[in-house]
Design a protein around this nucleic acid. Structure first.
Length: 715
DNA sequence: GCAAGGTAGTAAATTAAACC
DNA sequence: GGTTTAATTTACTACCTTGC
């Protein structure tokens, strides 16, 4: 395109002028250097396609690499007292899966950050076992209801594995054969077995040891030796790791305050893909580049006045590719335990002192050492004060950070609080079906596709119903009429109108399928808006809604507060290109002007109308009730909730209704074009489904949707 | 294999202090 | 003066070791 050899010299001059501009704007040298690099790339490109391909492909970050899997086995001897210590241990050992035994009844008092916990109660108060799995992995519980035994399937690793966590206290009689059917191809069985086997690093083999050894052999499992015996009280080794996976190693660590040493099992072969990177977009450079390329795009459009669609698709591609080009990926920091080690140490010594005090008291027939008692009291209150000090310190740092950031609206404050208090709707990773829980992403995507595809089919037309027949007939006739009728121009769009709408957009950074977010559009310099105005006017003139805007990306969220949803409990969110939303807004304004001008919307309807706030409705209802009370009359309210008002709008019905209301033909043409041939696809993580047609409902997330849906409910 | 002795832990009961 | 909260005390449990 631009880098014709003959023009090489001219290019150099243009490049120099561009850089000079950036320097004149007063940007620091680092930014200038970055911009220069991008400009060089731009002019080195042979074709626009080639360059954009490069930007799109080359800069897809190599975000994932395989990290080895670590599994922590630890007898915590009471979760209530060793929770923080264990959390710290998990962080230090970088474990993704933890099998914690002897957790006691307070197993859910403190949750492990970024982990999902599967608990199975034990036979006694102190018993119970937890399998905790990091949220970067997908874990599904295999419910067996055997005490002290938890089974969890782990996906998201290079291979699917099964973890069986066992706590086998001295007093419990059990037969391990109940586990036999649950031993999978890739299984790791680990936990506290309270059994001694000579060949497994214990001084001698006991009865339970013999039983266990035989069972392990029968089931073709192998014992993974640690680096020392796991009991602190004796020479015995009573925590084991058994598996049928090859190439596992285990290390026994000498940390922790319980009476067992923890074991970390490692696998180099089985790992998970690290995606612990997050994007940082250099918006400054993005803005500078847009500013510099302004003239280029204006000229491009001038060359393609007949084919604005082509220009538009190149332009949107440029925006998203440029964003990718200026995006850097940074590694995420590790999380820290909630309390620092010195406080944990403090709490530990307090507990020890207390136990000693009461033990001594018991020994001495109730006679206490007054001094020890006072020391103990001091220690307890000191530990408490220390925790308060630490927590309030953190809170203060947070508050002062907000203050320094000059966050007038308290945005950072509320976003912090909402993280704690606001219930979140999570993207779904699992789906409940008639045949059980599905956790394979691809399968879920297909099921969702089937479900939403079915939902989007044309509504059944009742052929015996005269009204339905009429509508079908009429809508066909109208559509034909539209094709034949001469095109009348709608009022053209002005640049100011678009600019105003862009300013009104929420500053969101999430994007539709074209990868362009609101934020990116808000940064556009005026030159582009001028170009967009020309494009929009071209489409308005042709009474055509561009095809590229009709594909919606559907992401699904869980409607439930927690748990695995069924298909009908998922909430679909359609993401549409922001450009189309601006265009629709204009369309909406034009329709509203017509509707209001003809007084078609009743005054009572206040939803989704400018100036018609919900509180006015509440007030008017209140007034009504008050009036009735004054007149000593009962008030009866009837609430009608049109379920899925937008989703179920019948296109043909809408068209006929609007025609009957006397909508101008050009607006109607536009709306027909807007409704026709809509497509959507399901986007679930990395997986994208086939596209399917949407024959029913108004485009979700579209501005115009509200007006039409509400109109129908009252007209 | 079992009971006793010891340690470390949890839960409940009781008492003291703080609060309104 | 009653109620709530925190501190203190007691009761009980699990598990390991030791001794028989």
């Amino acid at each position: 395109m631009k880098s014709n050899p003959n023009h090489a010299e001219a290019n150099e001059i243009v490049k120099g002028a561009m850089l000079q501009k950036v320097i004149d704007w007063g940007f620091p040298p680092r930014t200038v250097k970055y911009v220069k690099k991008i400009i060089d790339e731009w002019y080195a490109g042979k074709t626009m396609n080639g360059l954009l391909d490069l930007w799109e492909a080359k800069l897809t970050p190599a975000i994932s690499h395989q990290a080895p899997l670590n599994i922590l086995t630890y007898n915590v001897e009471g979760w209530g007292s060793r929770d923080l210590e264990t959390i710290e241990m998990i962080a230090n050992t970088d474990s993704s899966i933890c099998v914690l035994t002897e957790v006691g009844e307070q197993w859910n008092k403190v949750s492990i950050p970024h982990f999902k916990t599967f608990y199975q109660k034990g036979t006694n108060l102190k018993g119970g076992v937890i399998i905790a799995v990091g949220k970067h992995l997908k874990a599904t519980r295999v419910d067996i209801g055997i005490e002290n035994t938890a089974i969890v399937d782990i996906e998201g690793l290079s291979e699917r594995i099964r973890i069986i966590g066992i706590y086998w206290p001295q007093c419990q009689n059990r037969n391990l054969n109940d586990l036999k059917p649950f031993i999978d191809e890739k299984t790791i069985i680990t936990g506290d077995f309270n059994a001694g086997v000579e060949s497994w690093d214990s001084p001698k083999t006991d009865a339970r040891g013999r039983q266990l050894e035989k069972w392990i052999e029968e089931n073709n499992l192998i014992y993974i030796p640690g680096t020392r015996n796991s009991s602190k009280r004796s020479e015995r080794n009573i925590d084991f790791v058994f598996t049928n996976i090859s190439e596992l190693t285990a290390e026994t660590l000498e940390v922790g305050s319980s009476d067992h040493w923890p074991i970390v099992t490692k696998s180099e072969d089985i790992g998970y893909q690290i995606t612990g990177y997050f994007p940082i977009v250099n918006w400054t450079v993005y803005e500078i580049m847009l500013q510099l390329m302004q003239d280029f795009w204006t000229k491009e459009l001038a060359l393609e006045t007949q084919n604005v669609d082509n220009w538009y698709s190149n332009y949107t591609r440029f925006l998203s590719a440029l964003k990718k080009r200026v995006t850097n990926w940074r590694k995420r920091d590790k999380f820290r335990p909630s309390l620092p080690p010195y406080i944990i140490q403090m709490l530990k010594s307090v507990r020890q002192a207390r136990n000693k005090y009461y033990r001594d008291k018991k020994m001495n027939n109730g006679i206490v050492d007054e001094e020890t008692r006072l020391i103990l009291r001091k220690m307890t209150s000191n530990a408490k004060k220390e925790i308060v000090k630490y927590k309030s310190g953190r809170w203060k740092t947070f508050l002062s950070q907000i203050q320094e950031a000059h966050d007038v609206n308290g945005k950072a404050f509320w976003s912090h609080l909402s993280k704690i208090y606001k219930p979140r709707t999570l993207p779904i990773s699992k789906l409940l079906t008639d045949v059980g829980v599905k956790s394979n992403q691809n399968e879920i995507k297909d099921i969702l596709y089937d479900y939403y595809n079915e939902q989007a089919k044309s509504p059944e037309v009742d052929h015996r119903n005269n009204h339905d027949q009429y509508i079908t007939r009429e809508s066909l006739r109208i559509k034909e009429e539209i094709i034949k009728s001469p095109k009348m121009k709608l009022e053209p769009i002005t640049q100011i109108e678009i600019k105003r709408l862009i300013n009104k957009l929420k500053n969101k950074k999430s994007a539709g399928y074209d990868e362009i977010s609101n934020h990116m559009i808000k940064l556009l310099p005026p030159g582009y808006i001028q170009c967009l105005t020309s494009c929009f006017n071209m489409w308005i003139e042709e009474c055509r809604f561009p095809e590229v805007w009709k594909t919606a990306k559907i992401v699904t969220l869980n409607k439930l507060r927690g748990g695995i949803p069924r298909t009908d409990q998922t909430r679909p969110i359609s993401l549409l290109p922001t450009h189309s939303k601006i265009f629709e807004k204009i369309l909406l304004n034009r329709t509203r002007e017509w509707a209001e001008g003809n007084q078609l919307i009743p005054n009572e309807q206040s939803g989704f109308r400018p100036g018609g706030l919900l509180p006015t409705r509440v007030l008017s209802i209140y007034q009504e009730i008050k009036n009735n009370l004054a007149a000593n009359m009962p008030t009866l309210a009837i609430y009608v909730d049109y379920q899925k008002a937008y989703d179920k709008v019948w296109h043909d019905g809408l068209i006929v209704k609007l025609r009957d209301l006397g909508i101008p033909i050009n607006l109607l043409t536009m709306i027909v074009s807007w409704l026709n041939c809509r497509e959507a696809y399901i986007n679930l993580g990395e997986n994208k489904s086939e596209k399917f047609n949407i024959d029913v409902g108004l485009p979700q997330g579209a501005h115009s949707g509200h007006l039409f849906a509400d109109d129908l409910s009252v007209l």
